[in-house]
């Protein structure tokens, strides 16, 4: 089986006035296609840092990151943008929809930056909206939706470009438990249909829903299940 992402001995350091913060200290990880990984660990252990590296929002200080068969370790800023546009779907804790756009327009944004827009893209976005149960809210603005609904839009958006994997940083952190359960159900369903998901979470209950858990501590992986 090919792997969706492969991280080899990656470190990440932040240099600041007060010294160097070593957010990641040699992390190796392989995520096969179709996997559902939960990254867990205490605050400050480097979960978000790892997710940002996987999401091509940043470059590692050392080590190597492969997405599919593509080495992204030394990619330029524009190349990273291209990879994000075509291969990665983000779901954030605070939804991060663009307020002046409608639901449908929000879902379409990643396609827009891929530099393509065909009529079947529009159809695909409509299907995604239907899948997350919002086909009757297409013309609404994010502020007119509940938190759970906004997160559904964000999930639909993350799938618009048919990404290698979905990265979710505490996707249920801002939601009540019932809504959170619904969102997690959606993720499980997506994974069932073949989507690779990498999720960061604090809560063990949520982590258990994934296929496996990776524990981070002080920038290193503790154990694998």
């Amino acid at each position: 089986m090919t792997s969706a992402a492969c991280v080899q001995d990656v470190t990440k350091e932040y240099r600041m006035d007060g010294g160097t913060v070593r957010a990641l200290r040699g992390v190796s990880l392989e995520v096969p296609e179709g996997d559902y990984v939960a990254i867990m660990g205490p605050s400050g252990s480097g979960k978000s840092t790892l997710l940002n590296l996987l999401g091509c929002l940043d470059r590692p200080t050392s080590g190597r990151i492969m997405l599919g068969d593509k080495d992204v370790t030394r990619a330029s800023d524009d190349q990273l943008s291209e990879i994000r546009a075509s291969r990665i779907g983000f779901v954030f804790q605070s939804y991060n929809l663009i307020p002046q756009l409608t639901v449908l327009e929000n879902i379409e944004v990643p396609l827009y930056y891929q530099g393509r827009f065909a009529s079947d893209d529009r159809r695909r976005c409509l299907e995604l909206a239907e899948m997350v149960g919002l086909s009757d809210r297409l013309k609404h603005r994010p502020t007119q939706l509940s938190g759970g609904q906004q997160q559904r839009v964000a999930i639909a958006r993350s799938l618009a470009n048919d990404p290698y994997f979905m990265l979710a940083d505490e996707p249920t952190g801002n939601l009540d438990s019932v809504t959170a359960a619904e969102i997690l159900e959606l993720l499980v369903e997506l994974n069932h249909n073949g989507k690779t998901i990498i999720m960061v979470t604090h809560e063990t209950d949520i982590g258990r829903q994934a296929k496996r858990i990776i524990q981070l501590k002080d920038g290193m992986i503790l154990e694998k299940e």
Partner: peptide, 16 residues
């Protein structure tokens, strides 16, 4: 700023 961050995460280049 936040919108800019979102757009960048979703694949916008600096030029965009």
């Amino acid at each position: 700023t936040r919108e800019i961050g979102i757009r960048r995460a979703l694949g916008a280049k600096r030029g965009d």
